[in-house]
Simulated scan of single mutants.
Amino acid sequence: MKKFKEFDIPFAGLKQGEHRFGYRIDNLFFEGFDYTDFNDASLKVDVVLHKKSNMLELDFAVKGTVNVNCDLSNEPFDQKIKGSLDLIVKFGEEYNDENEEILILPHGEHQVNVAQYIYEMTVLSVPAKKVHPGIKDGSLDSEIVRKLTELQPGTEKEKDEETDPRWDTLKKLLTDK
């Protein structure tokens, strides 16, 4: 995690209470994780650290846009994202991050690196299906969209074609109930 040194939060010298940290994230951050699904990124991440006598509570929030390719047309567009993550940091005998909500640091640690949590929160904030807004409102004009519209089931070509009379008889059974 040497390359993400700016994401180290040194909590040892902080007083108990609330402390705020802010980060600007761009595509170089994701390239550090070998993640190439984003063409570009412009994100603001806020981290609120609640320091208590025996543990730390971290509240992450991300907001901004990532440039991704549409799953239907492969056209790039800016996808707005917003997400949050809560993490509890406790202290124990050895490092343990098996639980996604609780991180255990060894006694004597004086900082926590939050880069991995920012990465995971951001990637999981992107919708599973990325659809260009121009497809939803019909304003996107591209060759792929025209071809998809042409090949859509139920178009005029299929309505004009005659159907097999055997299928018509079977369809009649469904309506006779």
Rank of each mutant, 00 (worst) to 15 (best):
K2P: 01
F4E: 01
F7M: 01
P10E: 14
F11T: 02
F11S: 03
E18H: 10
H19F: 10
H19R: 06
Y23E: 03
R24H: 13
F29L: 04
F33G: 01
D37K: 15
F38T: 03
D40V: 04
S42T: 09
V47E: 00
V48F: 06
H50R: 12
H50F: 11
H50Q: 15
H50N: 15
L58M: 11
F60Q: 01
A61H: 13
T65C: 12
V66N: 00
V66G: 01
V68W: 00
F77G: 02
K80E: 10
G83E: 04
G83P: 10
L85V: 08
D86G: 13
G92W: 07
D97N: 15
E98Y: 08
E101K: 13
E101M: 10
I104Q: 07
P106K: 14
H107W: 07
G108H: 10
E109G: 09
E109I: 08
H110S: 12
V112P: 00
V114N: 00
A115H: 01
Q116Y: 06
I118N: 00
E120N: 14
V123I: 11
L124S: 12
L124H: 09
V126W: 03
P127D: 04
P127F: 03
V131I: 15
G138A: 05
S139Y: 05
L140E: 02
V145W: 03
R146A: 14
L148D: 07
L148W: 04
T149H: 13
E150A: 14
E150N: 13
L151H: 09
Q152V: 04
Q152H: 13
G154F: 04
T155P: 14
E156C: 09
K159P: 07
E161Y: 07
E162V: 10
E162Q: 15
T163K: 14
K171I: 10
T175P: 00
K177Q: 13
